[in-house]
């Protein structure tokens, strides 16, 4: 039910949102490389950040996983003494998903977004329980040090077909998402 161009478009929307919102400074370099879906690593920690965008014909779950590498924590906590990593990471993830939500609104006027929620990484194999029609994972590296993994999981309930512009514009500013 999800056309090929809709799949590519969702990926593109995510990549644009990630490159703009998962970095703390515009000059930071964010690289995104594809991964085999469902291969999230790490272990008994509550480090899966889950966010959902719902529309009538589909729901899109964005799952971000912070690696356990200390450089990732260091990157996100830089200049934020006394703040918990989970809190900062949830804010960053929320901005990224909010950016996707705004871009999707151009194609689907009725959309809503959930608040972020953390899950144990051992829940990851059970994404299949949601009977997704489309799964896509990627590894994200920021400045070659901070490392994340992201998975897009789309469950469709009606045909989904849309296309973003080939040169989808990359946002330069992130608006504050309230949650």
């Amino acid at each position: 039910m999800i056309s090929e161009q809709a799949r590519r478009s969702m990926e593109q929307i995510f990549i644009n949102a990630a490159k703009t919102n998962l970095v703390l400074a515009p000059s930071d370099v964010c690289e995104v490389a594809p991964l085999v879906p469902g291969r999230a690593q790490g272990n008994r920690e509550k480090n899966l950040l889950l966010l959902t965008i719902s529309a009538f014909p589909f729901r899109l779950l964005t799952i971000l996983q912070a690696g356990e590498h200390p450089l990732t924590r260091e990157y996100y906590l830089k200049g934020k003494p006394g703040r918990a990593f989970g809190e900062v990471f949830a804010e960053v993830g929320n901005l990224c998903c909010g950016s996707m939500n705004r871009e999707l609104t151009r194609h689907f006027p009725h959309l809503g977004m959930s608040v972020p929620y953390f899950l144990d990484s051992r829940c990851m194999p059970f994404l299949d329980e949601l009977q997704p029609e489309y799964l896509s994972s990627c590894a994200i590296s920021i400045n070659g040090s901070a490392r994340l993994q992201a998975t897009l999981c789309v469950c469709a309930y009606a045909p989904v077909d849309f296309a973003v512009d080939a040169q989808a514009r990359e946002e330069t500013t992130g608006e504050l998402e309230l949650f």
Binding site: T52, S54, L61, L111, S114, F126
Partner: peptide, 24 residues
Amino acid sequence: HKNDMTTTATFQDIQAGGKMMMAA
């Protein structure tokens, strides 16, 4: 863990669906 995944996904769908309906 399976329950966590399905419950959270349902929870978030209801939450996002609620916001969508309020906007509509």
